[in-house]
Every structure is written in structure tokens, then in C-alpha cells.
């Protein structure tokens, strides 16, 4: 009786000692390839953003609107990025895939981009400043801006279904290219992402 009691309490106390010892670990950093997939919390992450931009870029350059515009207007279309509104349940940074798309479209040499409305404000401020301070030869005149032919707009939506520790997350990104001349939607791109997130019940 005496011994079993002691053994029991010894075991408990050893567990306690272990628990106390399990503190303090140093920070470690490991470099990764930007394309490597690493899911941590199940929230929207870099991989999702990359998948969306890849899919959208491939689609937007393959479609007929580009060829049709070049044929009828015999020049490259100019596109402006409008608002991509986040209707999802997460604070998602849309700039990453929007700028990925912008870069791919510009580098394809088939599309031109004009600065967005916030960027334009800054540039106009600079032109105003040039008007006062820059030399006559290098000064850029006002009213020479290039108007856009199409506006890129979009939404991110999510549907969440959860039960207990399991959560199903469904993301849908829709991007639309709208003709500024006649409000025609010339291209609609869509990317769906579905994730099953299982939360653990226990940690050490």
C-alpha cells in the first residue's frame, strides 16, 4: 500500500517536472521556394493567390476579346484595374494576384495598362509640381492621359460549412473585364478553391 502510493505520486511528479521543462525553444528560419505549398491555418495564403493568378492569366490571354479588339481597332487594348471587392470572411490582400495579372498581361505585349485612380492622383500631383519646378523641355503637359478601353473588376466570395473540428472552406474568385465604351462584359474569369480544414483537439 505504501509503495504503490509512492510510485503513483512519483509518476505524477515526474509528469509535472516534464511539463515544467517543456518551455523555451529558439526561433528557427528555413528558406522556401515561393512555389512550394505550405498550408498552416487553412486561411487564404500565398498558394491560393498564386493559383488564382495563374489560372486567370492563362484564361484572359487565350480568349477572343483580345484578338477581336486588336483586329477592329488595330491597336493594343488599354486596361485599368478597378476594385476587386472582398466579400469573403477573411481579410484577404487582393493586390498580390491583381499585380501578378497586371505583370503577366503587360509582359505578354498584347495589352497595355493605365494607372489606377489612386495612382493617377499621385501622378497628377507630380505633373502639377513639374509645371512649377521642372524645365520647359522636360515638363509633361496635362490632359494627355491615355484613357482605358476596359476595366478589370472582381469579387472574392466564400462559403463556410463547419461541424465540430472540421471546416469546409470554399473560395470563389470572379474577375470581369468590362468594356468602358459600351459596358459589355468581354471576359469573365473564375477560380474555385476548396479546402477541408481539420482542427486538432489536443496539443502537448
Amino acid at each position: 500500500m505504501h509503495q504503490t502510493l509512492s510510485k503513483n505520486s512519483l509518476a505524477v511528479l515526474m509528469a509535472l517536472g516534464l511539463a515544467l521543462a517543456a518551455t523555451g525553444c529558439s526561433t528557427s528560419v528555413k528558406r522556401m521556394e515561393a512555389s512550394e505549398v505550405k498550408d498552416l491555418s487553412g486561411a487564404w495564403n500565398d498558394t491560393d493567390s498564386q493559383q488564382v493568378s495563374e489560372e486567370m492569366i492563362k484564361d484572359v490571354l487565350d480568349r477572343t476579346w483580345l484578338g477581336e479588339f486588336s483586329r477592329t481597332q488595330s491597336r493594343q487594348p488599354a486596361v485599368i484595374v478597378g476594385e476587386v471587392s472582398n466579400l469573403s470572411h477573411e481579410h484577404i490582400n487582393v493586390n498580390t494576384f491583381v499585380s501578378d495579372m497586371e505583370r503577366a498581361l503587360i509582359n505578354s505585349d498584347k495589352v497595355q495598362f493605365v494607372a489606377s485612380s489612386t495612382e493617377r492622383q499621385e501622378i497628377r500631383g507630380e505633373r502639377k509640381d513639374q509645371d512649377l519646378n521642372a524645365s520647359e523641355a522636360s515638363r509633361k503637359a496635362m490632359g494627355q492621359e491615355k484613357g482605358a478601353d476596359f476595366m478589370l473588376k472582381g469579387t472574392i466570395n466564400t462559403i463556410i460549412d463547419a461541424s465540430g473540428n472540421t471546416q469546409l472552406r470554399y473560395y470563389q474568385v470572379d474577375l470581369t473585364l468590362i468594356s468602358l465604351a459600351d459596358n459589355r462584359k468581354v471576359w469573365v474569369g473564375q477560380k474555385k478553391i476548396k479546402k477541408l480544414v481539420e482542427r486538432s483537439n489536443l496539443r502537448f
Binding site: 505524477v12 516534464l18 511539463a19 517543456a22 482542427r199 483537439n201 489536443l202 496539443r203 502537448f204
Partner: peptide
Amino acid sequence: LEAAKAEMEKLYAASVSENTLSFI
């Protein structure tokens, strides 16, 4: 508050060691 949310999410899983300690 966002950091607090992330921390809460982490603590969703009950800790074995902490609960053992809490028993004593």
C-alpha cells in the same frame, strides 16, 4: 485584436501538459 484572434485559434486544442499541471 487580430493577433489575439490567432492566439485563440491556436488554443482551440486543449493542452495535455497544461491540464495535467492544472490538476495539481
